Amino acid sequence: MQALMFFMGVGTLVVGLCYSLKTSSAHDIQQAALLPFADDPEAANKITQSTGMTFDKIVNGIELDLTAVPNDSTDSFVA
């Protein structure tokens, strides 16, 4: 019984992975691979120069200004 459940789980995982990859275009998969470099323009330029792959969108990171967030006593976290 446990072996049957295991193989059903593995089968579901394989079918889901195949469906996910089949519905994604090559361009989408390429952009997902480039995503870790999208927030660093210097690294994005190096990747583009060395591989020729281009980024659809380069994300500019911003610093969060915590002073602009209102202090609500219900949103407290004690470690």
Rank of each mutant, 00 (worst) to 15 (best):
53 M>W: 15
35 L>E: 12
7 F>R: 05
20 S>D: 03
29 I>Y: 09
27 H>W: 13
40 D>F: 01
10 V>I: 13
43 A>R: 07
2 Q>W: 07
63 E>W: 02
26 A>N: 13
19 Y>G: 04
76 S>I: 15
71 N>S: 13
70 P>D: 13
61 G>D: 12
74 T>V: 15
51 T>F: 05
40 D>Q: 01
24 S>P: 10
24 S>Y: 09
33 A>F: 14
63 E>G: 04
29 I>F: 11
56 D>K: 03
17 L>Q: 00
32 A>R: 01
54 T>F: 04
74 T>N: 14
67 T>I: 03
10 V>D: 02
77 F>R: 01
33 A>T: 09
27 H>Q: 09
20 S>P: 01
79 A>F: 15
9 G>W: 07
61 G>Y: 08
77 F>C: 08
76 S>E: 15
60 N>H: 12
27 H>F: 14
56 D>L: 00
63 E>K: 09
50 S>V: 14
62 I>F: 13
39 D>R: 01
3 A>G: 02
24 S>T: 08
25 S>D: 09
67 T>K: 02
70 P>Y: 06
65 D>S: 05
37 F>R: 03
40 D>N: 11
66 L>S: 06
37 F>T: 00
10 V>E: 06
67 T>H: 10
42 E>F: 03
46 K>V: 12
23 T>K: 00
49 Q>I: 02
44 A>E: 00
21 L>M: 04
21 L>V: 08
39 D>S: 10
1 M>A: 13
50 S>Y: 05
53 M>I: 14
73 S>M: 04
58 I>R: 05
6 F>C: 08
2 Q>C: 05
34 L>V: 09
71 N>C: 01
61 G>E: 14
45 N>R: 11
44 A>G: 04
29 I>N: 02
47 I>M: 08
45 N>Y: 08
38 A>R: 07
5 M>R: 13
71 N>I: 13
9 G>R: 10
51 T>S: 06
11 G>S: 04
18 C>D: 01
35 L>M: 14
48 T>I: 02
3 A>M: 10
11 G>N: 08
15 V>T: 06
18 C>H: 08
35 L>A: 15
33 A>M: 13
29 I>M: 13
67 T>Y: 06
26 A>S: 15
60 N>R: 09
